[in-house]
Amino acid sequence: MGDDPETSFVNSYLQMWNMDNLFVCGSSAFPHFGVTNPTTTAAALTYRATEGTIDFLKNGGQLVEAKN
């Protein structure tokens, strides 16, 4: 997850950079092996992706502009 398609696969809404209509929900978007349980973080990221999906359905296209 990041703000540059060269260094990340998804943007902050967990939307794939190269596929506008694909959102990756769950804990696969951030590194594992953390010290704490990632359940709350995964739920928060999924909630954010849901907000992004709703916005995508209304407007279409990328929700975040890539930094280059």
Score class of each variant (00 low, 15 high):
Met1Thr: 11
Met1Asn: 14
Met1Leu: 05
Gly2Ile: 15
Gly2Tyr: 04
Asp3Gly: 13
Asp3His: 03
Asp4Cys: 05
Asp4Thr: 05
Asp4Lys: 06
Pro5Glu: 05
Pro5Phe: 01
Pro5Leu: 08
Glu6Asn: 05
Glu6Trp: 06
Glu6Gly: 09
Thr7Lys: 03
Thr7Gln: 13
Thr7Phe: 09
Thr7Glu: 09
Ser8Pro: 03
Ser8Ala: 12
Phe9Trp: 08
Phe9Gly: 11
Val10Trp: 03
Asn11Ser: 03
Asn11Val: 01
Asn11Arg: 02
Asn11Leu: 01
Ser12Thr: 01
Ser12Gln: 08
Ser12Glu: 11
Ser12Arg: 13
Tyr13Phe: 14
Tyr13Lys: 10
Tyr13Pro: 14
Tyr13Gly: 01
Gln15Cys: 05
Gln15Glu: 10
Met16Gln: 04
Met16Arg: 09
Asn18Asp: 15
Met19Asp: 07
Met19Pro: 03
Asp20Val: 00
Asp20Ala: 03
Asp20Cys: 00
Asn21Tyr: 12
Asn21Glu: 11
Leu22His: 00
Leu22Asn: 00
Leu22Val: 15
Leu22Gly: 01
Leu22Asp: 01
Phe23Glu: 00
Phe23Gln: 03
Phe23Val: 08
Phe23His: 00
Val24His: 00
Val24Pro: 00
Val24Asp: 02
Val24Thr: 04
Cys25Leu: 15
Gly26Thr: 13
Ser27Ile: 07
Ser27Phe: 10
Ser28Pro: 06
Ser28Asp: 12
Ser28Val: 08
Ser28Met: 10
Ala29Trp: 04
Ala29Arg: 04
Phe30Thr: 02
Phe30Ala: 01
Phe30Ile: 06
Pro31His: 03
Pro31Asn: 03
Pro31Asp: 10
His32Gln: 15
Phe33Thr: 08
Gly34Glu: 11
Val35Asn: 15
Val35Pro: 03
Val35Ala: 11
Thr36Met: 11
Thr36Asp: 14
Asn37Thr: 10
Asn37Gly: 04
Pro38Val: 03
Thr39Trp: 12
Thr39Lys: 15
Thr40His: 06
Thr40Pro: 04
Ala43Lys: 14
Ala43Asp: 13
Ala43Thr: 11
Ala43Arg: 13
Ala43Pro: 05
Ala43Ser: 12
Ala44Ser: 11
Ala44Thr: 10
Ala44Lys: 08
Leu45Ile: 07
Leu45Cys: 06
Leu45Trp: 14
Thr46Cys: 14
Thr46Asp: 12
Thr46Ser: 15
Tyr47Arg: 15
Arg48Lys: 15
Arg48Trp: 01
Arg48Pro: 02
Arg48Phe: 00
Ala49Phe: 02
Ala49His: 04
Thr50Ile: 12
Glu51Met: 11
Thr53Met: 15
Thr53Asp: 06
Thr53His: 12
Ile54Ser: 06
Phe56Asn: 00
Phe56Arg: 02
Lys58Arg: 14
Lys58Gly: 11
Lys58Gln: 07
Asn59Ile: 09
Asn59Leu: 08
Asn59Phe: 09
Asn59His: 09
Gly60Asn: 08
Gly60Asp: 10
Gly60Ala: 07
Gly60Phe: 03
Gly60Trp: 00
Gly61Pro: 09
Gly61Ala: 07
Gly61Leu: 01
Gly61Asn: 02
Gly61Val: 02
Gln62Arg: 06
Leu63Asn: 07
Leu63Asp: 05
Leu63Val: 07
Glu65Asp: 13
Glu65Thr: 07
Glu65Asn: 04
Glu65Gly: 10
Ala66Phe: 04
Ala66Lys: 13
Lys67Arg: 08
Lys67Thr: 05
Lys67Trp: 06
Asn68Trp: 05
Asn68Met: 11
Asn68Ser: 09
